[in-house]
Simulated assay, not measured.
Amino acid sequence: MKRLNGRAEKRHIAFVKVHKAASTTVQNIFLRFAMQKDLLVVMPHVPNFFYPNVISTYNTVTNRNILPAPRNRSYEILCCHVLYNRTAFERIMPQDTVYIGIVRDPFDHFKSILNYFRPKQVFEIDDAFPESRFLQDPEFYNNGSLSSFLDNSMAFEYGFPPNLFKTRNKTEIQQYIMKLEKEFQLIIVVERFDESMILMRRLLNWKIKDVLYMKHNVRRKGSGDFLFSPGDGYRHSRWDELDYSLYDHFFKRIQFQLREQGPDIYEEVLYFRRLRRDIAFFCQQIPGKDSTYTVTASRWNDAFVVTGKDCHYMTIPEISYINELRLKQYGYFRNILPVRGLETAFKSSVGSFR
């Protein structure tokens, strides 16, 4: 195992991949690392109607929804969609696993859910501004739906106790958040994404090249431009109370973690942003397989080379990457439907799961 600054890089990671929270961008980082180091990624057992990159949207990991590890191998990276449950995760992951999650500003998350899933609980409202009308009485319009992704869905994916979605007991909410505080070494904050990536690089003792990224699943300009009324932000915070408590806590925590690192972390973040910009310029040229871009040595990294192949794997769609890794790990993959068909199947079946 390679060492950086005298410390071994960490290779066992469980990532809670939250829907519509820049989680595919982070997942791509883990998939690239796994492929480079030949690490075993936990793969979904794919039912006939579902995405091949989703373990479950309504359950945690079980022996029924993941493929068994190949002979003489153990799971090393968990980064596909599945609900967090510490006991279940520990059953399949090594003891030294680093637990990483992600959260996003809840109102921005709400808008992204509206844009992507187009939930009928909102868009079947007979009103010129259904998204604003929904927030007038979300409990009525959502009607207890577990499939809309509108009711504290980040909290749901972090495994909050079901009773809290009804009682909203503030003491018990904080107790569960403190449990997560102890269990996760890092929870990435989307609004502090580059800072989070540098914290993650330092936590895992990875090279700066390992955490380079290109954004995935970014909504097109002009899409999702919803019309809200004054007070809608407040109304949403009352409705999505668990998600706001979760986000606020881990926003404060990452600010504290950044301060703990000292001022040099902000210098590294600035360097990282500029480096990412240059890599983006190189990759956007659609370089050939023999094209290279050399990054000179700096305070934060030795010199390294970015290739056309690197660009390919930084931009490859999630499903394609999962299928390629499945083929590498198991010698086969079940691409049951073409990608467009999979998306249609997923959206049409969303009523059967959260």
Rank of each mutant, 00 (worst) to 15 (best):
D240M: 10
Y247S: 02
R201V: 11
S245M: 04
E172D: 14
L246P: 01
L246G: 01
D248C: 09
E181W: 00
Q175H: 09
E191A: 14
K207W: 10
Q175D: 11
F226M: 04
R253A: 10
Y158R: 07
H249P: 06
E183L: 04
L212N: 04
N205L: 08
V189A: 02
N163R: 15
T171N: 08
M178V: 05
I173C: 00
K179S: 08
N163P: 10
S196V: 14
W239P: 02
L246N: 03
S223F: 03
L204A: 08
D210Y: 05
K252M: 13
E157M: 15
F160Q: 05
N217C: 11
P162E: 15
L246C: 10
W206C: 09
S237D: 12
R253S: 13
L186E: 04
Y176G: 00
Y244K: 02
R219K: 07
V189Q: 03
Q175W: 00
E241K: 10
E191G: 15
R235W: 06
D243A: 12
S196Y: 06
P162K: 14
K170V: 12
Y213M: 08
D240H: 01
Y234H: 12
L204F: 10
P230M: 03
I208N: 09
I173Y: 00
I188M: 11
V211P: 04
I177G: 04
E183C: 08
R235Y: 05
K209C: 13
F160P: 07
K221W: 12
K215T: 09
R219P: 00
W239Q: 06
E172P: 03
V190R: 04
Y244C: 09
S196R: 10
E157Q: 13
E191F: 04
F184Y: 14
Y234W: 03
M214Y: 12
Y158D: 01
V190H: 02
W239K: 00
S196C: 14
S229R: 15
G222I: 06
H236S: 08
I198K: 11
I177V: 10
E157T: 15
Q174N: 13
L203F: 02
E157C: 15
R220H: 07
N169T: 06
L227F: 13
G233R: 15
V211W: 00
F228N: 03
K179Q: 12
V190I: 12
M200Y: 11
E181P: 00
D210F: 12
R219G: 10
S196K: 10
K252Q: 13
E172Y: 06
I187A: 06
L212P: 01
L242C: 06
R220A: 11
R168M: 11
M200N: 04
P162I: 11
F250A: 03
F160R: 07
R201K: 15
T167D: 15
R238E: 11
T171P: 06
H249G: 07
P230W: 08
G159I: 10
E191R: 09
P230H: 07
I198R: 15
N217F: 10
I177A: 03
I173T: 01
M200R: 02
N169W: 02
G233M: 14
E195I: 01
W239L: 05
Y158P: 04
Y234G: 04
V189W: 01
L164V: 12
M214I: 10
T167K: 05
Y247R: 15
D248I: 01
K215G: 01
F193V: 05
R238N: 14
Q174T: 03
E195R: 04
I187D: 02
R238V: 15
F184P: 01
N217K: 00
